[in-house]
């Protein structure tokens, strides 16, 4: 682990703008009910990938024009996959398949592990080490342990060595479901959205570190809004 060896350039892409205007806030028009949060995790994430020319970013949240534009304008290539929605649709389809299956056919007990394996046969299908950065947002809070661990394995394999993951973890179950978009290099907007899934678990710090145990290093930032940011370096 040697993130510290990387020099920080003044005025780099992740540098904070100077002056009072640096306060995070709606640089663009805010959606009703949305909230903005200063994000040191995002700032560090951008700093980590700033050396990569034409790097590839994987956004696992709901597609957002703002986030896409943010990275594309900086020369990155972006892949997007609404992972949580795909999981929900997969579960619905599985449920329907089992419901209409003839009695006696394929009536084995479906475990969470089997479901997770099956889901990942079609999700996140990219070449290994093809991404320099992954935006996982708060996905891990919504999955069971079986899918979480397998998803982590897959993410690790997809990341280029030296690549990083930005993830968010709620310190308590959130009052509403949000999706996220990047407003500027240090601000994330939380947009209220129709609930896609029920919040599954609150990770303790130790659990987060264990989950990302294969990564070279991790760094967490705690905000006053009960949202922790984690940055993990492969």
């Amino acid at each position: 682990m040697n993130w510290a060896a990387k020099p920080r350039l003044a005025g780099g892409m992740a540098a904070a703008p100077a002056g009072p205007a640096a306060k995070p806030g709606p640089a663009t028009s805010a959606a009703p009910g949305s909230a903005f949060r200063a994000s040191n995790g995002l700032k560090e994430f951008l700093w980590l990938i700033s050396d990569v020319r034409g790097g590839r970013i994987l956004d696992l949240g709901q597609v957002s024009q703002a986030t896409l534009t943010f990275f594309i304008e900086k020369g990155y290539r972006v892949s997007t996959e609404d992972f949580l929605r795909s999981w929900k649709e997969f579960l619905t389809a599985e449920e329907e398949r089992l419901r209409i299956a003839p009695v006696g056919e394929d009536n084995r007990k479906i475990s969470q592990a089997i479901l997770a394996e099956k889901f990942l046969e079609s999700a996140m299908q990219y070449p290994e080490e093809s991404f320099h950065g992954v935006l996982a947002w708060d996905l891990f809070d919504y999955f069971d342990a079986e899918l979480t661990s397998r998803m982590m394995e897959r993410l690790y394999s997809l990341l280029h060595p030296g690549g990083s993951i930005l993830a968010l973890f709620h310190s308590r179950p959130p009052e509403r479901f949000h999706r996220y978009r990047i407003v500027d290099p240090q601000t994330i907007e939380l947009l209220p959205a129709p609930t896609l899934a029920v919040h599954s678990r609150v990770f303790q710090n130790r659990e987060i570190l264990d989950l990302f145990g294969k990564f070279r290093s991790s760094k967490t930032f705690v905000g006053r809004d009960q949202l922790r940011e984690g940055l993990f370096l492969k």
Binding site: P24, G33, A38, V222, G223
Partner: peptide, 10 residues
């Protein structure tokens, strides 16, 4: 830790 400056929910 980063300060969150949430706007009040409307």
């Amino acid at each position: 830790s980063p300060q969150s400056s949430n706007t009040p929910a409307r």
